[in-house]
């Protein structure tokens, strides 16, 4: 398929170009999937992903409801050690340094990062190019459905 067939008759900015499905425009984040494993921050070659998180104790379930922990549970039903989970505080991607290599999207074990084909996010101030997690979630609504 030639480029002429791919582009609609109208020109930008009146009409948006038709982009292929895996176009790398901007990265979107599903915060619920992220476990702060730090793999994307470590693998990023540009050092442009900033993650802050903290640990929180998990509220314990009742005497009959708690799942079996590694050690055998005490007769009262409570596991001996207080369990903690990691809560994501800050997830930011600095798009002024990002080289769109896709390593973070590929390495994420929990499918929290996805590609969107949006490209219209030029800014007047370079600090606005660091997208925090609320803005990264907004990009999620522009991610195309995966091909069947």
């Amino acid at each position: 398929m030639s480029d002429h067939d791919r582009q609609p008759r109208g020109e930008y900015p009146e009409t948006l170009p038709e982009l292929p499905p895996r176009t790398r425009g901007v990265i979107a984040l599903i915060e619920e999937n992220c476990t702060s494993c730090m793999l994307c921050a470590r693998e990023c070659p540009a050092w442009c992903i900033y993650i802050d998180s903290h640990k929180e104790p998990v509220p314990q379930a009742g005497p009959t409801g708690s799942p079996v922990s590694r050690g055998s549970p005490a007769p009262s039903g409570r596991s001996g050690r207080e369990r903690t989970r990691v809560v994501l505080d800050r997830f930011a991607i600095d798009y002024s340094i990002c080289m769109y290599c896709s390593i973070c999207v590929e390495v994420c074990p929990f499918d929290a990062l996805h590609w969107s084909s949006e490209f219209e996010y030029a800014e007047l101030d370079i600090r606005e190019l660091t997208h925090e997690k609320d803005r990264l979630r907004e990009w999620m609504w522009t991610v195309p459905a995966p091909p069947a």
């Binding site: 730090m38 990023c44 050092w47 802050d52 998180s53 505080d89």
Partner: peptide, 14 residues
């Protein structure tokens, strides 16, 4: 530049 990957899960600058 501090390496963003130096933090462990559950750690933040504060």
């Amino acid at each position: 530049k501090p390496w963003p990957g130096a933090k462990e899960p559950g750690e933040s600058d504060d």
